[in-house]
Design a protein around this nucleic acid. Sequence first.
DNA 1: CGGCAATTTGACTGTGGTCAACGTGGGTGG
DNA 2: CCACCCACGTTGACCACAGTCAAATTGCCG
Lengths: 242, 242
Amino acid sequence: MPTSPTDHGVTLKLDRSLISDLPLFAELEAAACDDILETAHARHYGKGAVVFSQTEAAHSFFLLLHGRLRVTQVTAAGEQIVVRFVNPGDIFGVAMALGRDTYPGTSTAVVDCLALLWPSAIWPQLIGRHPLLAANAMRMIGGRLQDAHQRLREISTEDVERRVAHAILKLVDEAGQKSAAGVEIDFPLSRQDIAEMTATTLHTVSRIMSAWEAAGVIESGRQRVVVRDRPRLMAIAANADD
Amino acid sequence: MPTSPTDHGVTLKLDRSLISDLPLFAELEAAACDDILETAHARHYGKGAVVFSQTEAAHSFFLLLHGRLRVTQVTAAGEQIVVRFVNPGDIFGVAMALGRDTYPGTSTAVVDCLALLWPSAIWPQLIGRHPLLAANAMRMIGGRLQDAHQRLREISTEDVERRVAHAILKLVDEAGQKSAAGVEIDFPLSRQDIAEMTATTLHTVSRIMSAWEAAGVIESGRQRVVVRDRPRLMAIAANADD
DNA sequence: CGGCAATTTGACTGTGGTCAACGTGGGTGG
DNA sequence: CCACCCACGTTGACCACAGTCAAATTGCCG
């Protein structure tokens, strides 16, 4: 199922309307957007394709336009954790800007994706010419730092059920799609994925979600989660006794 | 014991030799350092003093020159975690740059500290005038993001003993002081602190460290940790069976 | 020297991990 | 187009790691 990446529009001029509304380009003038796009390429990644791998040299950084990516890290002992999911408008693979010369994780397309990419070496020039871009990028990285700290807080202090509830609610906020029965997470998400986000096992996740399904809180199936009763799920996320 | 902050050198001209060797100012020219220092104040915080508090408006950002700070967050349920320790040369309280208008945590001086501070509002101008400062700051924030991900990995996949071993080793690297018996962490650090860094309880930390002490790996007392046998501690951090 | 905070240690318990076996649905190939 | 197969999911039994509760001890600080 993995598809090899294919180039698109490398010679084609990229239109700034693709990106000018994204938070990364907030406050930037049209000319600045054009200048930044000058050095960008667009590329398509089929479902299952690996955009970059952990420890690989960080040749490029990316901006996701369409689709959804999963970023994972593998420990020395071979266990995997999900670092985050990348949403449209997010930057990813910015290792070089963060002071690394290799990617710290692996990112995989969970659905068909379209991304822009720049050579990492360009970053210093871009922020030199466009201080607002630097400020915006720093805000986005800041958001990721907050997310990481929130997860640390949750894993440190909450029991598994509340952690799973928080994880599902966050994904619903980022990738919720109204459907007949409620709000559905619009990309394939396995029990294993949820376990790797919440520091537990797929078994425990399955047990918890089965209980929720029986209680009418969610509806779920193979790599599919629909939240039926959001307030109830929020109550579970907040409360210890239930 | 908490001391109220006192101003120092507000009118006094700050010398760039204080800061020009720090990573935040790497590659910056002398004139740039002077320009940045123009808007800085220096301030002293006595042991136990609170530099800023969670949810407080982020009026300033800081650079630690001397001492050591602990940054904590409190959950809605009232439980506390240690986010990190701030070492000399680190920036902290950069909430505004990360897109927040309040501090996400509380920072407390664990020993007497000296810090520079700037009004948060100045940040955009500073990075506008000094792109290298932006690049350096982003690298430092990137390092914190890596740290957070490493802790997530550890809490998710390792048992308590290995997590504690990793935490102690990291602190020894950052704040190790050669002493008669080995390498000592040069600031007061309680079992509770270690527990809040590693998502466990002070009881479990105490049991683990008692065992290590009996085995001659460390020597410890009231808010004091000396690593006697670093290689052995590294082996504990790496291995599961021991 | 009195008092309190930090630490130690013991006994018990429960959450959630491990091991194992069995469903099930969807994609793929014949 | 249907059937097979495999990845994904479910469920049960068991038990261990580490959290909780409790109490004693130590060592600073004032």
